[in-house]
């Protein structure tokens, strides 16, 4: 495994958007079929992205574009560090940094829609972060490592040890991926909330960068899910497909919640499924060095 990480990290920079865009494309097709529609072509996200970068729009202020570009840079960096095999706990904190840049870009416009979107995004960050941290800590507890590849090659059926944490993670991924019922800060596809919430004042290339960063992010978020199913090829494929379908399914069958609910539900789930899984796991595995 040694030495190959750097190539995977480079491949991620090049191919990450491809994979992320495809995930998004499949999502849109599946969603359309669930609703009895034909839906867009599979490559629709790529057409959208290409178009966004051909638009010409003036920024709202001089801070907006630099902040959005920083968001993209740090979102990519997060993924690079992740696939380079750095400490994944550190990486989650860097992920926060990337999100902060986006939130600040929205705040800087001062428009009511962007501001409320940014407020809600922060609230969502508060809601999902504990669960992600607890999930990583639990992964460390099983695999005794914070390195992506070491956990991956530990070949343990982690989902059997940490079922609650897996479910909790899927729950908060719904927020991170801007899916219903938690698409309260900015929404995807043909949905609208607060005009476009966080991205209300971003058009053309600015929105393109946000979208691109989102694709990069979704790749390593799914890589994170992969860690739970890395014991065999079959479980990896089944696990990822089930998770992906579950997320789309939930997106389609749930209605948007209020922000107060989003926070309290997420924390409750974190406490019950996350901490509730961590503590028994800790008690059982205690003593085994």
């Amino acid at each position: 495994m040694k030495g190959i990480e750097i190539y995977i990290a480079i491949a991620y920079v090049v191919l990450g958007p491809l994979l992320g865009g495809l995930l998004d494309g499949f999502d849109r097709v599946i969603t359309a079929r669930l609703q009895g529609r034909v839906g867009p072509p599979l490559l629709q996200p790529f057409y959208d992205l290409r178009k966004l970068f051909t638009r010409r729009i003036r920024p709202v202020n001089r801070l907006q574009l630099p902040l959005i570009a920083s968001h993209l840079v740090f979102a990519v960096l997060t993924g690079v560090l992740f696939f380079y095999g750095s400490d994944i706990l550190l990486i989650i904190f860097v992920l926060t940094l990337a999100s902060i840049f986006l939130v600040l870009a929205a705040y800087s416009t001062g428009s009511p829609f962007s501001t409320i979107g940014a407020d809600r995004e922060l609230l969502l960050m508060t809601a999902y972060e504990p669960m992600i941290i607890i999930a990583l800590v639990a992964l460390f507890g099983v695999a005794k490592s914070f390195n992506f590849y070491e956990i991956l090659s530990s070949a343990m059926p982690i989902y059997l040890y940490l079922p609650g944490i897996y479910l909790g993670l899927v729950f908060v991924l719904q927020m991170k991926l801007r899916k219903s019922p938690f698409d309260i800060s900015a929404s995807h596809h043909a949905h609208q909330e607060l005009v476009m919430g966080l991205t209300a004042d971003m058009g053309g290339p600015a929105l393109g960068m946000v979208e691109l960063a989102h694709w990069y992010e979704s790749v390593y978020l799914f890589a994170l899910v992969l860690l739970f199913f890395s014991s065999s090829w079959v479980s990896a494929i089944v696990g990822l497909s089930v998770t992906y379908s579950l997320i789309i399914f939930l997106d389609n069958v749930t209605a948007r919640v209020k922000w107060q609910r989003a926070l309290s539900i997420a924390w409750l789930v974190t406490l019950v499924a996350g901490a509730g899984n961590l503590i028994p796991f800790y008690l059982i595995s205690r003593g085994t060095p």
Binding site: A118, L122, M125, T126, E129, I133, T270
Partner: peptide, 20 residues
């Protein structure tokens, strides 16, 4: 760990909104 996770998430909230 749980306390640290909840506490630092909340920390992000109040600092970032101030920064905003």
């Amino acid at each position: 760990i749980a306390a640290l996770a909840f506490g630092s998430a909340t920390t992000v909230l109040f600092w970032a909104k101030w920064m905003g």
